[in-house]
Design a binder for these strands. Structure first.
Lengths: 197, 197
DNA sequence: CCTATATTGGTACGGTTGCACCATATCTTA
DNA sequence: TAAGATATGGTGCAACCGTACCAATATAGG
């Protein structure tokens, strides 16, 4: 057999080029030739490692998500051995905000894929399976597991994400808004649970 | 002078074709030739009424926003002469949800423009001026004008919009979640304002 | 060493893109 | 009616697109 090459590494290298282009100009900028130039490899290599352009975009998205989940898990783990539920929840929510370049680019790329998510059935199915567990997790971390508050909390966080990406909202303000909601939801229970349930 | 033509009507007719294409396949599907075919006019006409493709996309967006604002104002006005603040607020928030085909298409198109909003400076400036007044309005409609709650309420609503567009959330559930938040924020004030301020 | 095969390179093709350009038609005003 | 501005139509061009195809290379197993 001929030279063995680390496929995973090469795919990741190419995928990173897709991310950069998609984040700055949308999916339409991620053409095969442009991605190849951005990655510094011959265009033919993209064909070899990903196949068609559709496969390239899908593959790049999958790698992005994998990286994102790993990063998120890492940050939650960094909270220590037995973290407070509130801290875990806060960490999970903050994962949705573009607080560093890594997260910013990731969310930017997700936005670029958004329209395709909605119209192309292949993508649509893939996304409709994951998120219920996320809402479940948030509800579990909330005192008394208030589902309505959990759902709106998550929605609010993704809303803040959008405003931050548009430059309408500072990181400090976004975090402050989330902390205010957490203050309320984790408030001492010596009164009738302010209408959240 | 020659035949006079209703420019505004023609531009709107063409813009509607842009919306349909952008809503179903993203901005990259809104090529000059495709838009022309969708609108049933020669491609040359797009050049005449909009100029370059960039101008076409910008013009189509502007018409979309104008239509959206008009529709929203109409629905608020339909509440009657002296509506309750809560009803006005609810109406404003529901305007962000894709509750009918008109709003659904409008928000879909906005998503298609999203990445460009973030990167192209021309668009970026245009969007950074409008929204503060919206948050102000919401805060004003809220009892005691709690700014933090107002901001998070708007963020939450746009978050629900995204989930609905992805088919993850039903209209009923989204409205229910908003109404729960309104229940809480408009709750009687016989106790110390549940930590919102 | 040698050969089978994983990997790379380069290119060519049919199709589409945005746009500039030229000619024509149509109608209002002078 | 003459004329000139407004509006329309069609075509051509250079650039780019995705991808199929063919050749060359390099290396691991025999």
């Amino acid at each position: 057999m001929p030279r063995q090459v680390d496929h995973e590494a090469r795919r990741r290298h190419i995928a990173a080029a897709v991310w950069r282009l998609a984040a700055s100009g949308g999916l339409e900028d991620a053409t095969i030739r442009r991605v190849a130039a951005e990655a510094g490899v011959p265009a033919r290599q993209l064909q070899y490692y990903f196949g068609t352009r559709e496969d390239l975009l899908l593959g790049a998205l999958e790698l992005l998500n994998r990286d994102g989940e790993a990063e998120a898990r890492e940050r939650v783990a960094a909270l220590g051995p037995e973290p407070e539920p509130r801290d875990v929840l806060r960490s999970v929510l903050l994962e949705f905000l573009p607080l560093d370049e890594s997260r910013r680019q990731r969310h930017l790329v997700h936005m670029a894929y958004f329209v395709r998510f909605m119209t192309e059935d292949a993508l649509r199915d893939r996304i409709r399976d994951a998120p219920p567990e996320l809402e479940d997790l948030i509800a579990m971390l909330l005192p008394e597991g208030r589902r309505d508050e959990a759902d709106f909390l998550l929605a609010g966080t993704t809303g803040l994400q959008g405003q931050m990406l548009l430059g309408q909202l500072s990181a400090e303000r976004a975090i402050e808004l989330i902390d205010r909601q957490l203050d309320r939801l984790f408030a001492p229970m010596d009164r009738p649970a302010d209408r959240g349930l």
